[in-house]
Amino acid sequence: MLTDPFFYAVAIPAVILVGLAKGGFAGIGVVATPLMALAVGPVKAAAILLPLLIVQDVVGVWAYRKTWDKGLLILMTPPAAFGIFLGWALAALVSSAAVELAVGLVSILFAAQRLWAERAVKAAAAIETGPARPWLGVLCGMASGFTSQIAHAGGPPFQIYVLPRRLPRDVFVGTSAIFFAVVNWMKLPAYIALGQFTHEVLATVAVLLPVAIASTWAGVLLVRKVPAEGFYKVIYVLLILVGTKLAWDGFFGLT
């Protein structure tokens, strides 16, 4: 088990943020790996987080088990599996910093455009009733799996396709919970094959597990206190913040 106090000083807030994200505040959990990497490096940070994510997924899926969109999951999950495979196969060729920068910039532009469009009722209505464009869902699903495997940043590509659907709040959260629960299980074999789950890592996971579970339930309770009409605006703002963080890390990673 890790005993460094600085590690827990950054790991506990990181796990809480992931829990809130799993509970419904989609996107903010992307800062968890960079936070923990300040203490243990990105590979070990990701290895510690993955079992916690899987447990948090169980809580999120259970909380929203009756509210999810079957069509979106059927459309986006198989391409996500292919994206995970591509991420694993191209890990030596694709810089995580480059992926973070690209995802961050696209996320900022997308969320800013949506916030601007929704200032006008007609524009918002046109967006809500626009074509589904399943080909875009396939691309976003694949991009989500790819970025999740490369840079643990699968949320923004998923949201870029799903947010414009204007699903009811709980359906959006439930669909996201199930999608990423499947994605995280698909990533598990690669971590096992790489020998990342050492005794030290698993013992540390056990210490952080109560925080992970409690913070996810807190997210479930808090997100339901956000007025439904303001929920998507909150998510768009969070997406801009997450995109800015990704672009910042990616830019300085490249330079």
Rank of each mutant, 00 (worst) to 15 (best):
Phe25Ser: 10
Leu208His: 02
Ala190Met: 14
Glu229Trp: 06
Val226Asn: 00
Gly27Pro: 05
Met76Asp: 02
Ala177Met: 07
Gly174Ser: 02
Lys66Leu: 12
Arg133Val: 13
Phe85Leu: 15
Ala112Glu: 03
Leu38Gly: 12
Met76Ile: 01
Lys44Asp: 13
Ile16Ser: 08
Ala203Gly: 13
Ala81Met: 14
Leu50Ile: 12
Gly253Asp: 08
Pro5Gly: 03
Pro164Ala: 07
Val182Met: 06
Ala45Gln: 01
Gln149Ala: 14
Asp4Arg: 04
Ser107Gly: 03
Val121Cys: 06
Thr175Glu: 04
Leu20Val: 08
Ala97Leu: 09
Ala151Glu: 03
Ile108Glu: 00
Leu50Asp: 09
Pro5Ser: 04
Tyr64Arg: 02
Ser107Thr: 13
Leu163His: 01
Ala206Ser: 08
Phe197Trp: 02
Lys233His: 09
Ala132Thr: 13
Ala97Val: 07
Pro51Cys: 10
Ile178Thr: 11
Gln159Trp: 02
Ala37Ile: 09
Gly230Cys: 02
Gly60Cys: 00
His199Glu: 15
Lys66Gly: 07
Ala132Ile: 13
Ser107His: 00
Gly195Gln: 05
Ile12Arg: 11
Ser176Tyr: 15
Phe197Leu: 06
Trp217Cys: 01
Val40Gly: 01
Lys44Phe: 00
Gly137Asp: 07
Leu105Asn: 07
Arg224Gln: 14
Glu100Val: 01
His152Trp: 09
Tyr161Val: 08
Arg133Ala: 14
Pro34Tyr: 07
Gly145Asp: 07
Ala247Val: 04
His152Asp: 08
Met1Ser: 13
Ala21Asp: 15
Thr147Cys: 13
Ser96Ala: 14
Leu90Gly: 10
Ile213Pro: 05
Phe197Arg: 09
Ala26Glu: 05
Ala212Asp: 08
Leu208Tyr: 03
Val103Asn: 00
Ala14Trp: 00
Val205His: 03
Ala37Tyr: 05
Trp135Gly: 13
Ala14Leu: 08
Ala112Arg: 05
Thr175Leu: 09
Leu194Tyr: 12
Ala177Leu: 05
Val242Pro: 04
Ala247Trp: 07
Leu93Arg: 12
Val43Gln: 12
Trp62Phe: 15
Ile213Tyr: 04
Ile178Ala: 04
Leu246Trp: 04
Val207Lys: 12
Gly27Asn: 04
Val30Arg: 02
Lys225Cys: 02
Pro156Ser: 08
Gly71Tyr: 10
Thr67Asp: 15
Val182Phe: 13
Asp69Lys: 10
Ile178Arg: 08
Gly83Gln: 04
Arg169Met: 13
Val223Arg: 10
Leu109Val: 14
Ala14Arg: 07
Gly243Phe: 06
Gly141Ser: 00
Phe7Leu: 15
